[in-house]
Design a protein around this nucleic acid. Sequence first.
DNA 1: CAGATGTCTAATGTCGACATTAGACATCAA
DNA 2: TTGATGTCTAATGTCGACATTAGACATCTG
Lengths: 212, 212
Amino acid sequence: MPIVKKTYKDQVVDYVYQLLLTNELGPGDQLKESLLAEQMGISRAPIREAMKELIMNGLVDYRPQVGNFIPVLSPKQIVDSYTTRGVLEGYAVMETCDQFSAEEVDKLENLTEQMENYAHKKNHKMVIEAGGEFHDLLISKNNNVQLLEYTDRLSLKLHILFFKYLGKLYGPSEVGRRHREIVESVKSKDLGLIEKVIRQHYVETGSKIAIL
Amino acid sequence: MPIVKKTYKDQVVDYVYQLLLTNELGPGDQLKESLLAEQMGISRAPIREAMKELIMNGLVDYRPQVGNFIPVLSPKQIVDSYTTRGVLEGYAVMETCDQFSAEEVDKLENLTEQMENYAHKKNHKMVIEAGGEFHDLLISKNNNVQLLEYTDRLSLKLHILFFKYLGKLYGPSEVGRRHREIVESVKSKDLGLIEKVIRQHYVETGSKIAIL
DNA sequence: CAGATGTCTAATGTCGACATTAGACATCAA
DNA sequence: TTGATGTCTAATGTCGACATTAGACATCTG
């Protein structure tokens, strides 16, 4: 087991993730350096380092001379973020659709079934986990570092900010139909169709979250 | 005249941009905090702040406990970066292609001619400037904040890192043909064509730079 | 000789204190 | 009333010093 020795900065980042995931922090809240430093028993320096990373990943809005805030995203901004995610993933998958083995396609279909089953049991957390694995596998063939950097950042941001809604968006039949549609498009190797289906998937996910 | 009072951090960022644009800094060089602090007569704190911003924009690679370095991009990474830029811009323009007025299309054609003329005179700097205006106008109709954030970052990164090559890539006839092709695709309102042409434009630009 | 280990150094990581400033509030004049 | 101005405070911006560590080099060991 790899003992990873984390720097204070990384601990702060994780701490803020936890605060967000447990709803102890919500949109509009300010992250005061002194307060965080006091809570964690460290100085402000590593807090500031952590803020920069959170800003980079879109999980914190920075206002010069004022402070760092959890972003308040408008419905349009939510849809925009998901749309952008879809554009990037759509391209990534389209470009590599002929690299998927039969086993990998099976795996995708398997994960789709898992999502359906978990959705039936209302096990939202596992729905999200299987969904994450599904999209990770989909995009895994692409090795465009720049593109992956952006999709990763965006995934993290959307995951952390909207985790609480993600599992409940779709019923079992819909989550199944949606992901089967993606798998079918990949199997078809119809480049235009792949991009269209994946983009649509994200736009609709974003739209659903935006109206909550 | 607006006197903008810049924070030290911003001055550091600008300073590093200058070092990069004037080739005083090149791929692989390390940005030592103490040295920069000494050169600018300030402490390391604002230097560190500036590093975070440069990292965010992809202009600096960060290695924990080691330091900050000007990135060394492989040919593939260069092409990847330009490709990603093309994917984002292609989508942005495609989505808004029916919002361009006749005057704006004229402006695009006008800028294309300017690029040709400047290229004839080997005025590389002005070719780049007109090119920047061309792409800014193209993308200006889109208001997807998330997408614009990424395209802006990527534009800045590619501009700063490859400024020295940009103007010399294409001869006058080629730069004209390429950009006219983009304008024509926008006028056609053929969504698939627009994305294809814009992506292709960036992929080829990246490929040319990659082999230098 | 090759690999493991020890040591050193220069760089980043962290600290606590002070400087500066955005925003809130009170005050005043038209 | 209302807009301009003064003042205050709590937050970020910056500082210089110390702690820690990655990487280079020397040393030991088989």
